[in-house]
């Protein structure tokens, strides 16, 4: 099970980033489609590496949200995942991470047996790094975060967990929940065959009602009162010399004057 989230493209230029303060939500930029959260593609890659290493794995990508852009979400299938399961419901528009965890736990338990739940290190929209962590608590499973390398063993897993100055080797039983970090390596680009296969696959789509949940079960504990773009009070001091080389020299002197270098 790989958890994936659709997010606004983080490469969107800041000039196109707009907020509608009357609804406290981001205005989708024109012509820039949403993407799968980059760290979640690391998690897909981790699952594919297990398959490359010879393990017989079935990879299910699971996402919770609304207004899915199928071309973006199907990238995970084109990379090599077997199934795409979407919980798509208008009631999921502004849910918090606790509600996300509740929906994910319900669909994972309903979907049947699994050995690993893999998630990205964090999401690039609300930066909440804790959906997989919460899922481990709710499902009562072992959790290892920031995994850069992963191996299946006879009775569980051995992983490398990134720490400040290196890594820890950790063993844990399965089923387990892991968050994968970008040190694992770049997610592979889908090849043509993968893209063709993905185009024929249909995502399995559920609504909240299909899962026996209602939006009342998902009320947020935190109430969003304001979403706004902070005013930058930074005023740049442009250094201008007689020519560009002189500007370089003057810049060095100015930084020394400020005791910055």
């Amino acid at each position: 099970m790989v958890l994936a989230k659709q997010v606004p493209d983080p490469e969107t230029p800041p000039s196109q980033f707009k907020i509608d303060e009357s609804t406290n939500s981001v205005v989708p930029p024109n012509g820039v489609p949403p993407v799968v959260n980059g760290f979640d593609l690391n998690a897909v890659e981790a699952a594919l590496l297990l398959r490359d290493a010879g393990a017989d794995v079935e990879i299910t990508v699971l996402s919770v949200g609304t207004d899915f852009v199928m071309d973006s979400m199907k990238k995970t299938l084109a990379m090599g995942a077997d199934r795409l399961v979407l919980v798509d419901d208008d009631g999921l528009d502004k849910i918090d991470s606790a509600a996300t965890v509740k929906v994910l736990a319900t669909v994972i338990e309903k979907d049947g047996a699994f050995d690993l739940v893999l998630g990205g290190r964090q999401a690039s929209d609300w930066d909440q790094a804790h959906v997989p962590l919460g899922l481990a608590e709710v499902l009562g499973l072992p959790l290892v975060s920031l995994v850069q390398k992963l191996e299946l063993t006879d009775n569980g897993i051995t992983v490398q967990r990134v720490i400040t100055d290196g890594y820890q080797e950790i063993t844990a039983p399965i089923p387990a929940v892991l968050t994968v970090t970008n040190e694992l390596g770049e997610p592979r680009y889908p090849n043509l065959r993968g893209i063709m296969q993905a185009s024929r696959k249909k995502p399995e789509v559920f609504s909240l009602a299909d899962l026996g949940l209602s939006s009342g079960d998902l009320a947020p504990k935190l109430k969003l009162t304001k979403l706004y773009v902070p005013e930058s009070n930074q005023q740049v001091e442009l250094i201008e010399g007689e020519n560009e080389a002189d500007s370089g020299k003057k810049l060095a002197l100015r930084l020394r004057e400020e005791k910055l270098i």
Binding site: P13, V236, E237, I239, A245, S247, G248, L253
Partner: peptide
């Protein structure tokens, strides 16, 4: 956008700005 976030800036070609900046930094250091 970087100039909206920066405290100091030089508008110019890095190929011309950087060598003299580096030389001055070395002198100061």
């Amino acid at each position: 956008n970087i100039f909206k976030e920066a405290r100091f800036g030089v508008v110019g070609d890095w190929e011309k700005v950087l060598p003299s900046f580096l030389a001055s930094v070395r002198e100061l250091k």
